[in-house]
Design a protein around this nucleic acid. Structure first.
Lengths: 201, 201
DNA sequence: ACCTGAACACCGTTCAAGT
DNA sequence: ACCTGAACACCGTTCAAGT
């Protein structure tokens, strides 16, 4: 279920090169279309990618699968940033800065996020890309902070993700308002999870 | 847009009694069907309510409108509870208890909430029932706490609603796990918004 | 192996015809 | 005024036919 979707999931040899090319092109187009309209039709995505509908379904057995693939590719950078931030900054500022980037990402990909919310069945599968990838980043940041004693030791990764959930639905029209709103949420979360005396970082 | 949907929106006299009856029955059935399946078809709802599809559309011009009506009716109790809690308890405990009820409500109506999330267009219309009704309750609780000095004075209603956003997506299988999860989120939020020295209420 | 596009089942929404 | 249900446009998904 959580196989990296860069190569064919079928056992054994790599996919035929034309298949790989089709797959990549479908994801490229899907990102564009879904960013413009969270309800973009798969028909239109297949058409713009220059493939038949059957081909799209061969690579992604249902709408959800395509969304995962798109999201996975996009969110990867966000995850990578966590490790880099931990190298450059003390744990709590690193966490704060990562949250800021998460906010910027959520806003930039609001329609994509909405598309996922709309088509995803109500299960709690932790293998889903958005959740799973953010989870990796959050785990690292959280562990560093707990080791440094800046965040309460009993806080779990899931608690933190839940507290941050609102960040995905920030959608004020002006960028400045969005940033301000994200910042206010981040302040609440930091204050809510930090150990005494660490609030004003 | 935010007219109380109990009576006909058309100016002047009240609706014909059969129309009123149809309207109520549609909402009754919709609540049942949407709770069971967030993607329940309007066709099926009309059928089970014993009306034609056109009748459903006469009362609710699109899917979203029906969802608003259902949600509005359900969430009303939650709003009413806020005033009552403020009468019985000190401000901060009242806020905490209301958040607990919000959590219970969100879990009980998870599918309905999901249905709304799915069909609602990406605008930030504050007249939408879930948001608007909770906003009323939150405003009252927040004002009481700020007057009492238990919550930071610069916190806005929207900040608090955003911090609580995660509560709508709690969906662990066992009730005990859900309650525990909600409690943990509430603790983070309370710690994040309370003034110094009020954390352990 | 992989691709294509017509075909199927279904859904939201509209509207001509009724009372 | 209000109701009915066939009809329209559209979508996700499947599949017979091709290379």
């Amino acid at each position: 279920m959580s196989v990296p979707p860069t190569r064919s999931t079928l056992a054994g040899r790599p996919p035929r090169s034309d298949a790989q090319r089709n797959r990549d092109r479908i994801i490229d187009v899907a990102l564009l279309e879904l960013t413009a309209d969270p309800d973009a039709a798969l028909r239109a995505i297949a058409k713009k990618a220059g493939v038949g509908q059957g081909t799209l379904y061969r690579h992604f057995p249902h709408r959800e699968a395509l969304l995962w693939a798109v999201y996975h590719r996009e969110v990867q950078r966000l995850t990578d940033a966590a490790a880099e931030l931990l190298r450059r900054l003390p744990p709590l500022p690193a966490l704060r800065e990562w949250m800021r980037r998460l906010g910027a990402f959520a806003v930039a990909n609001a329609n994509l996020g909405l598309a996922m919310h709309r088509s995803i069945a109500p299960t709690d599968d932790p293998d889903r890309p958005r959740y799973a990838l953010c989870a990796t980043a959050v785990s690292a940041l959280l562990a560093a902070n707990q080791q440094a004693g800046t965040v309460r030791p009993d806080l779990t990764r899931d608690d933190l993700l839940l507290a941050l959930a609102g960040i995905w639905q920030i959608n004020d029209p002006e960028p400045a308002a969005r940033e301000a709103r994200a910042e206010r949420l981040i302040n609440i979360v930091i204050a809510g999870i930090a150990t005494e005396g660490q609030h004003a970082v």
